[in-house]
Amino acid sequence: MMRLDRTAGWIIARLMGLALAVGVVAAAANSPAIADDAEKEIERYREMISDPMSNPGFLNVDRGEALWKLARGTKNVSLETCDVGEGAGKLEGAYAKLPRYFKDADKVMDLEQRLAWCMTTVQGLDTKDVFSRRFGAPGKTSDMEDLVLFIANKSSGQKLNLSLDHPKEKEMFVIGEAMFFQRGGQWDFSCATCHAEDGKRIRLQGLPNLSKVGKASQDTMGSWPTYRVSQSQGRTMQHRLWDCYRQMRWPQPDYQADGLTALTLYLNKNAEGGVLQVPSIKR
């Protein structure tokens, strides 16, 4: 029931309230200050937790180093002669160039495919157990995640620098690009749905444009592998892509599938010049 006897004070109060509401709404609609504030706070949070001495990802690095040196398999040798791209046993700078073509396998491989290759050929190790623990969980460590964080850390400070000299590398780039833009699943999502424009957000989470060389792609690809606080686990690009496809309403991808390598090659090529700072730490 509306009151008819409005006082001047009532009217002024209502007008001020309206102006405030319009101001807030206008601010929210035109330049979401809340998003900028959130981004600044997230950046501050990231800086606070980016201390190697407090990044649990370095526990993965320590375990990875031990696994690298552990003799096992039917040949009872360690991985220390494994060639991950820069020569047998050479780890410095190797991660910055992956995925790449390997002549002995005659295919383009990412680090995890290469480690599986070395486990099988160098160590004579049955990789069934390693594959069953590909993604760590409470009470279950992942040899692969540990080894990737260890080996990636040997390239920390280096720039991503992939070669497309070999025909198979060129082919994988073209395939990776096509997969990036492939619409599919019940929601018609592709990677590009979220990652092909500058300055977009999902809720308040900023989305890097991964479809071209730029600061966003360089910073993002330079931060993998990482320790994900929300999962309490070290995570690699294999897991990140698995998690992306999950949220895209696609099926579960096969671990170490060549399509994932093609995608990773495309993403890393689009991040050329990005400085690796790994393992990083993320939410």
Binding site: A178, M179, Q182, G184, G185, W250, P253, D254, A257, D258
Partner: peptide
């Protein structure tokens, strides 16, 4: 590309592969 995508998801249940 179609072959590459299929191969990437070949272990998924058939009703999931159908979504692609």
């Amino acid at each position: 590309v179609k072959a590459a995508v299929s191969a990437t998801f070949k272990s998924a249940p058939p009703e999931w592969q159908a979504k692609l």
